[in-house]
Simulated assay, not measured.
Amino acid sequence: MKQTVTPALRQWIIEQASAGFAPDAVLEAMKSSGWDEDVAISAMESTLREHLQSQNKSATRASPPAADVPRTASPVVARPASSLPDVALSGAANQIDVGDGLVEVIASLINPRVLVLGHFLSDEECDGLIAAARPRMARSLTVETKSGGEELNPDRTSNGMFFTRGQTPLIERIEARIARLVNWPLENGEGLQVLHYRPGAEYKPHYDYFDPKEPGTPTIVKRGGQRVATLIMYLNEPTRGGATVFPDIGLEVAPLRGNAVFFSYDKPEPSTRSLHGGTPVLEGEKWVATKWLREGVFT
């Protein structure tokens, strides 16, 4: 089928160049979204050449339709809901077929997009993740937004570690299930992170996207663009405390073994109401696994 280079696609290419994305990254984003390589190269070359010739004219900044562009939009541009990871719900169905089993839909919010899911992981999978992660745990770090590196943060008092994508058969199976659940390319996911919270440990309310106003953000988003969604999976149940809270919408999700909570955010702004945190563990311990999803291929 012939692929048509639309004005919306040309505008998207200009926005990516203006945002500092390298041509190779833009090309890979187009290819991963289904564009033929020759068409993509021709579109990039002609668009950027014409843009350079007409820089004295004001460029239109309207966001392009999701059907016409790849899924790696500029980190400061809001994406249509159709271009975000999401769980496809059909009618009144309260279960989702993820290929290797059924996942329950416990609660679903449209705006902001939040879903609480039951039986996403089996007991054996929860135990396997904890056992594989336990020997490698260290004090959790957060992104250092000034430089794009990492730092200790007093708001986050857990221990944690990262698996590389597809590192073990167990990780590979869970990542494939996530990709099917939210209809998002597997390669657009960061490595799975496992966190351990002892009594008193917490993660105060925060956003998962990278603040575009911070000087380190351009460095961070070179590895796959902005974060656009999060999936938190509960690997055990603390005796008391440890809930995941969304202060802006008054939602509190209990940390039940095998369950998960999914939420997305269409732009890196507080208006997404994606503020969330982990309340202090009051008794027992809490283990969770987190998957962050990016706009483009995470390298």
Results as ranks from 00 to 15, higher is better:
Thr164Arg: 14
Ala176Ser: 15
Arg257Trp: 07
Ala201Tyr: 05
Leu121Phe: 10
Val261Ile: 13
Leu102Thr: 08
Ala254Pro: 06
Thr72Pro: 08
Thr279Val: 15
Leu275Arg: 09
Ile14Thr: 01
Glu295Ile: 07
Thr272Lys: 00
Pro70Thr: 03
Ala81Glu: 10
Arg257Val: 09
Ser147Tyr: 02
Ser274Ile: 02
Ala92Tyr: 07
Ser33Cys: 14
Ala88Gln: 15
Leu102Val: 05
Pro80Leu: 00
Gln167Val: 08
Gly101Glu: 05
Ile178Asn: 04
Val103Tyr: 04
Gly216Tyr: 01
Ser82Asp: 09
Ser42Asn: 07
Gly241Cys: 08
Thr60His: 12
Tyr209Arg: 00
Pro85Cys: 03
Tyr203Leu: 05
Val143Met: 08
Gly101Arg: 10
Met137Thr: 01
Ser74Lys: 08
Arg273Val: 01
Lys31Trp: 07
Arg173Asp: 08
Ala131Gly: 09
Val76His: 09
Ser83Tyr: 07
Gly224Ala: 09
Ala40Leu: 05
Ala133Lys: 01
Gln11Gly: 00
Arg156Met: 00
Arg134His: 15
Ala43Asp: 00
Glu28His: 12
Glu15Ser: 14
Glu28Ile: 07
Ala22Tyr: 02
Lys286Pro: 06
Thr47Asp: 06
Trp35Leu: 14
Asp38Ser: 15
Thr272Gly: 06
Gly118Trp: 06
Lys57Gly: 04
Asp68Pro: 03
Trp35His: 13
Pro268Asp: 06
Ser271Phe: 10
Pro65Phe: 10
Glu150Lys: 03
Val98Lys: 04
Glu144Tyr: 05
His206Thr: 03
Val297Ile: 13
Ser54Asn: 14
Pro185Val: 07
Met30His: 11
Thr72Asn: 14
Ser122Met: 04
Phe210Trp: 00
Asp68Ser: 13
Ala40His: 12
Asn159His: 12
Phe163Tyr: 09
Glu104Ile: 03
Ser83Thr: 02
Val98Glu: 11
Leu152Ser: 02
Leu9Asp: 02
Leu192Ile: 10
Asn259Gly: 09
Pro154Cys: 05
Lys146Glu: 15
Val69Pro: 02
Ala19Tyr: 01
Thr272Cys: 09
Asn56Cys: 07
Ser33Arg: 07
Gly149Phe: 02
Ala92Lys: 15
Glu144Lys: 09
Pro154Ile: 01
Ala88Trp: 10
Phe163Gln: 08
Asp211Ala: 00
Pro75Ser: 03
Lys2Tyr: 10
Ser74Pro: 00
Arg139His: 02
Thr60Pro: 06
Val114Ser: 12
Trp292Ile: 12
Val281Pro: 10
Asp36Tyr: 03
Phe120Glu: 13
Trp12Ile: 01
Phe162Leu: 11
Pro215Thr: 02
Glu45Asn: 12
Val69Tyr: 00
Arg257Gln: 15
Glu214Gly: 02
Leu186Gly: 04
Ser122Glu: 04
Pro268Cys: 09
Gln193Ala: 15
Ser54Ile: 04
Val105Ala: 07
Ala88Leu: 15
Arg49Thr: 14
